[in-house]
Design a protein around this nucleic acid. Structure first.
Lengths: 243, 243
DNA sequence: CGTCAAATTGACAAGGCTCAAGTGCCGTGG
DNA sequence: CCACGGCACTTGAGCCTTGTCAATTTGACG
């Protein structure tokens, strides 16, 4: 059913479809939005905290993260993003960014003017509901991250974060958990879980020894998916995936 | 301007007004929703995780919190709520609750059928935008909580959480930070910050010694607001308060 | 073959947890 | 009016997970 050739925002539209059934009319309204597609390198900051934002963006390929910086300079990643994710719907209603948006790997990002999206959303309640639902899923994920950072020990915390990431990749059509090479560095993992990269290193080794992960050095992936889910106590209910 | 006698959902309407200007027509549409108002005791669980939800609710008076429970039974509070807060807009779009909603103090809660709210939202984009914005503010707060739990030490973490709470109380018209008696127990504070109540106790003493807090035993309040904000490194930008 | 970022390892320090005991306050029932 | 029970707050001692500091190794790439 999804037309593989339309591309451009294909992965976004597929995602919105799954959030709230959209009519053909609505899909074409979305496709009619003028896009500006950009190739971006790993490490590029797409939106910076405090910045006045006039475009919304969608991740077309590659991986990205959102992060905030504490007073003492420590960085906290608050979410990871995969192809098809809306990266800043919140700017539909906020003028200024309250966090940074940065690429983890090379990839492509599509931009479109917020003003047009605002109009579209007023005219087409179904599109609005799909985007709104996306925001609510985001919020649910943040709640789980609060729990993760505050209540789980290092091993469980890292395992949980990786389970979520692998699940979301699979949903985005990037491959099953056991085939996917994870794109983040140990420093990213530390920044996302509130641990130091030194301790992440020790903990990853331990997860490898359990068989939950495999691979060495820079490149690793899920070894035994059941093992990893068990180590994490992972229950995907909070992702509110389509039934 | 706000009619003090209409009451019922007055604080909610005031809040939505501040999120997105609503016309008189929209306000009366909101006021026409059939409410079921209930007095609830401290400790009452209003919505439980996994539950199928058919009503939305607004906190009319008192204080509430949302929390999740980890596999090992540890509780994590993910947000506090004050009079006027919508307690579960997310159930407009999710069938099942992904966390618990519980009263911290005695108070009153107003319920109304989700189906009616769903209709209202489709017919009145401005009401939808106001509620949507509320969700986005929530999400921004969760992001800050992730940072708080993961990156700040006990003293800063508790101070930050209290700064946010006091600010939101003030915005809700409950009084200025230095006059408000804080409603939560040390266990609540621990559950919200990822600390044990023992360590919360020691840290609160230290904040009292700094003058940031005052009061003894069960009842305490902000002593020196500037001191507390300094101890927390508090910057309210993430609350996206009306300009 | 040099360079650089990321991963790895070891020794030591420390913030926060656990366990355990004790205190003060308040509502309830006799 | 007082005794009792329960809940929240307090405090102390010792331990453990994780952080800090400082080398060193590895692999990718020009």
């Amino acid at each position: 059913m999804p037309a593989p050739e339309i591309d451009r925002s294909a992965s976004l539209i597929r995602k919105l479809q799954s959030l709230n059934d959209l009519s053909a009319e609505e899909v074409s309204a979305l496709q009619a939005l003028p896009l500006r597609k950009l190739a971006v390198r790993a490490g590029t900051t797409i939106v910076a905290e405090g910045q006045l934002v006039s475009e919304c963006c969608v991740l077309v390929s590659g991986f990205a993260c959102r992060h905030k910086v504490a007073r003492d300079g420590k960085r906290q990643i608050v979410s990871f993003h995969v192809a098809g994710d809306m990266l800043d719907v919140q700017h539909l209603l906020f003028e200024n960014a309250d966090h940074n948006l940065q690429m983890i790997t090379d990839g492509e990002v599509a931009f479109f003017p917020i003003s047009l999206l605002r109009t579209l959303v007023r005219e087409r309640p179904d599109v609005a509901m799909a985007l709104w639902r996306d925001c609510l899923v985001d919020a649910s994920i943040f709640r789980e991250w609060v729990l993760n950072a505050a209540r789980r020990d290092a091993k469980m915390r890292i395992a949980h974060m990786l389970c979520e990431f692998a699940t979301r990749c699979e949903v985005a059509g990037l491959g099953s958990p056991e085939t996917l090479w994870l794109p983040m560095t140990q420093e990213h993992i530390g920044d996302a879980t509130g641990l130091t990269s030194v301790h992440v290193n020790r903990t990853l080794r331990s997860l490898r020894e359990d068989g939950a992960l495999e691979g060495a050095g820079r490149f690793f992936k899920v070894g035994d998916w059941n093992q990893l889910r068990y180590a994490a106590g992972f229950n995907p209910a909070y992702l509110h995936l389509a039934a």
